[in-house]
């Protein structure tokens, strides 16, 4: 499946050149523009982002399926299903089961390949609280260093993004890098984030991490 790129003024009224040749010319022109402005190719494509048309999506999916099929020697199907109608994702937590072992904290850092140190980025923090006070975030402790958990008289609450229904981070972001999807997920685009940390200040659960480059992440396995 092929799709001609949009016709520019240069080709109106003339015999249309070969589409592949025209694409190459457009690409070279874009490269020259990038070189003249001094910005990287990656940043150029970020700023020149545009949504794919349904025909382009079908073409890229077919390319991916062919590529993966050749790589793995199997028939591969790549899905493009979007969010399901009438489904809204939320966040659930059973406090009665948590013992404060922090296994989830480190599993999350490994799964998402977060920076291990300098800076250490944890998307989950476990709050230790006094049973006598009940849920009192102001008197909670995330730095508890016990020999064994659960410690008597305490209970534990892992805190991460709560996928708020009316998220303050979305309201406060000055550049629109954070938004709420229709199916309930709060999303962040790292490329749009300018690192102002307004979302951290606005978040009621104090995630304690900001988006940014992971400096000490090990290479993927």
């Amino acid at each position: 499946m092929s799709q001609d790129p949009p016709c520019t003024g240069a080709c109106s009224g003339e015999t249309a050149p070969d589409p592949s040749r025209r694409t190459v010319v457009q690409f070279l022109a874009a490269g020259a523009a990038v070189a003249s402005t001094g910005c990287s190719l990656e940043s150029f494509f970020r700023k020149s982002f545009r949504e794919l048309s349904p025909a382009q999506v079908r073409r890229y999916i077919a390319e991916l399926e062919g590529r993966y099929g050749r790589k793995y020697g199997k028939t591969v199907t790549v899905g493009t299903a979007g969010p399901m109608e009438g489904v809204k994702f939320g966040y659930g937590l059973d406090l009665s089961r948590c013992v404060g072992c922090r296994r989830c904290v480190y599993a999350c850092a490994e799964e998402n390949n977060q920076s291990r140190k300098n800076p250490q980025i944890h998307w989950i923090r476990v709050l230790e609280m006094d049973k006598a006070r009940g849920v009192d975030v102001n008197h909670s402790d995330i730095y508890y260093d016990a020999a064994e958990v659960p410690r008597p008289g305490h209970f534990y609450m892992p805190v991460q993004c709560q996928q708020c229904d009316d998220p303050p981070c979305v309201k406060t972001c000055p550049v629109g890098a954070t938004w709420k999807e229709k199916d309930g997920i709060v999303a962040i685009d790292y490329d749009w984030c300018i690192g102002c940390r307004c979302c951290m200040a606005a978040c009621p659960t104090e995630p304690g991490t900001s988006t940014g480059p992971s400096r000490t992440s090990p290479p993927p396995k």
Binding site: V99, Y106, Q120, Y143, Y144, E148, V149, G208
Partner: peptide, 19 residues
């Protein structure tokens, strides 16, 4: 009863992190 277990290390404090 469920046996107590040793927790993994606490997170670094901001003062312990170096940029």
């Amino acid at each position: 009863r469920f046996k107590p277990i040793k927790p993994l290390p606490p997170p670094q404090r901001p003062s312990e992190m170096k940029r």
